[in-house]
């Protein structure tokens, strides 16, 4: 139990990174791509059908300064009996999606850590091509560290 999987979806809705955290969970590669792009479209649709949603983010991951005051758009959270999905969209439109067990408490913190790792090892990596799959070993390493794999 705990966290189940991470997806990172770029501005255009294609999957740039995914990692299954619970080993028992099996995904075919095509499935992950399909899921990611479906979620991307649903996110876009939901922000269209609630155009007057003006909820302001109070804070993120326990730090009031970070992203506080930005407008929440689209799907932020899906809660079911079997899992909780949290989605965090960065300013540039990159979506970080974390799927966890419903009891999990530290999802915001994990998303923030993933965002930090992304900012460090993907944005600042000279060899990372924009909107291409993430292959950096350093990024992989920091994700492993976040989830104690």
């Amino acid at each position: 139990m705990g966290h189940l999987a991470i997806f990172i979806v770029n501005q255009n809705g294609s999957l740039v990174y995914h990692k299954v955290i619970t080993p028992s969970l099996k995904f075919a590669t095509n499935d992950t791509i399909r899921l990611a792009s479906t979620f991307h479209s649903m996110h876009a649709i939901s922000s269209q059908i609630t155009p007057n949603c003006q909820d302001i983010r109070a804070g993120f991951g326990g730090s009031p300064g970070f992203l506080a005051g930005t407008v929440m758009e689209g799907i932020n959270e899906i809660v079911t009996d079997n899992f909780t999905l949290k989605c965090f969209q960065s300013f540039t439109g990159v979506k970080f999606i974390l799927v966890s067990d419903p009891q999990q408490k530290d999802m915001d913190y994990c998303l923030k850590s993933i965002y930090e790792a992304y900012a460090d090892h993907v944005s600042k990596n000279p060899f990372q091509e924009a909107e291409m799959p993430i292959r950096s070993d350093l990024f992989e390493g920091s994700i492993t560290k976040i989830f104690n794999l």
Binding site: D120, H121, K124, N125, P126, F127, I134, R135, S136, D137, L138, F139
Partner: peptide
């Protein structure tokens, strides 16, 4: 510090 080519790259070791 942040530069990493990943595993399968054509650039080799830079």
């Amino acid at each position: 510090k942040f530069a990493n080519l990943g595993k399968n790259s054509q650039l080799g070791q830079t």
